[in-house]
Amino acid sequence: MIKADKLKFFFLTLIALSIGTLALAPFIGMTKVTLAMLTDAAHTGIEKDIFWRIRAPRTLVSFIAGCGLALSGMAFQAMFRNPLATPFTLGVSAGASLGAAIYVRLGMVFTIAGASGISIFAFMGALLSIALLYGLTTMSRNFSTATMLLAGVAISFFFSSVILFTQYISDFTQSYRIVRWLMGGFEVSGFDSFFNMFPFVMTGGAILIYMTRELNLITTGDEIATSRGVDVVRSKNIVFFATSMMVGGVVAISGPIGFVGMMSPHICRLIIGPNHRFLTPATFLFGGSFLTICDTIARTIIAPAEIPVGVVTALIGGPFFVWLLLSGVLNKGIFYDS
């Protein structure tokens, strides 16, 4: 078990990192914005607009998106008892992308309550693929989790080829928009996106915080969990629901962003252990900070152009994760065979 002072230190570090990231990221960028400009009521330059209309909302959106993606990865890893299980490896991002691709191909343009049509279609696509996965999971209680994972991977491949097909029958502009969407990213202006995403992530997160004891027991296997008094089917339904809210809410706005969901829970588990009572808030803060930092790099490193944030998460995350795996540290943290 983790020592109380180590736990406290890790959480203080995470809180400091989160506050620091949220406070500093909006000041970083090609146009120099200083605190003095923001507090000076007489200042009339473009800087205030850049700060309040572009950078501040984007920082918040990327943070909340990171929280949601990381938590949904954690929930799926617990539920499927597998280190590779995330909504992304199981086809949810592909489902969302398919929704977006269909919207683009149909050439529709509409907005409902501040949410763009592409977001709504992506949200529906994410929910559809989660529903499919959920149907397979409940239909086949005798199947092993390995079978479930393979089914998820198959769903993912299937959706991907339908996306390719949609793209193939699209014209040049539509095709470009689809590719761009597939790269993921946060091109937000104003706080609409934030307000569209925030309730989903917070509701999902609150449900998971409420479910930490059940999550712990579910990772020990359905049989032990059941015999300890967990209503496993009901608990998994709730976790599925919470995860769909979070992933759907995030992916609808950001598009598919890989790696945050798989890596954040692993790193936190490595440091503070697998107890979800601590792991859930830690993963939340870590995922948020990580994605905001990646997004800040994505929009500044080749400024004035930007690179898709998904490229950055994988470029930083990939090698780091492989290093962790090879160094053997992670073997302590992920999983053991009995």
């Binding site: 990772t219 020990t220 015999s227 008094g229 967990v230 697998p274 107890n275 999983f335 053991y336 009995s338």
Partner: peptide
Amino acid sequence: QKKLAKIISYVPQGAGAMFPFSVLE
């Protein structure tokens, strides 16, 4: 399930892969 768990406990034959919880946890 919870009410039953107060009356009957179960020790399975094997538990498969598991996250590294401490014994106390």
